[in-house]
Write a protein that binds this DNA or RNA. Structure first.
Lengths: 94, 94
DNA sequence: TAAACTAGTTTATATTATAAACCATAATTA
DNA sequence: TAATTATGGTTTATAATATAAACTAGTTTA
């Protein structure tokens, strides 16, 4: 293929998540859910994949007795995202 | 979700094909194959989908006795592509 | 204390992408 | 001229991916 677009990022939801995390210092699970309008299950799965790739860190804690999942983009994740955007630009002749 | 990215175009190969067709007046099957490095089968399937969506026209003819498939982006296809690129830009905050 | 809610995870299913196998015809060569 | 290989694809089987439904574990409220 042309120019390989990182398949881990070329996914609607994972791209939305990474793009979101690239613009904030960190984000809670529910914030991601509100912003993306995706289901919890879908988000949970995609966070796992991003975490496995080392693109984000996932902190699990409690707040007001409830579980709280907080996500943060890593250096590696940010680099991958920026590379993806670059690739996409050349891909689309932008 | 955030901003719906046209799923018909948010596919590595179909995006490559549409992007390619957006930049030329028309293209032959084998030209698309060379440029994308994809397999014939995969291209055949994706051309069908793009055609079904009305994004391209597919002309079948013969040249030097061999079948020749020529593709061309439609007005609708070009509009969809441009919309996709716009959506992507806002999606990624570009 | 039972119902409803929070915050997720796991798993089953639907969708999509892809490659392998195939088809029809043409050209080549033995 | 019969067999072999090449051209230009299409069809179909499989692998990968995305998604939603069902579930878990605990909390709050009536």
């Amino acid at each position: 293929m042309y120019k390989e677009l990182n398949p881990l990022l070329h996914s609607q939801l994972r791209l939305a998540i990474i793009s979101l995390l690239a613009s904030v210092s960190e984000a809670e699970f529910n914030y991601i859910k509100e912003k993306t309008k995706a289901t919890s299950g879908n988000i949970s799965v995609q966070l796992d994949k991003l975490k496995s790739a080392g693109y984000i860190t996932v902190q699990k804690s409690f707040r007001d007795n409830y579980p709280l999942t907080t996500c943060k983009i890593t250096i590696k994740g940010r680099a991958a995202f920026e590379q993806y955007v670059q690739d996409l630009k050349t891909y689309l002749n932008l």
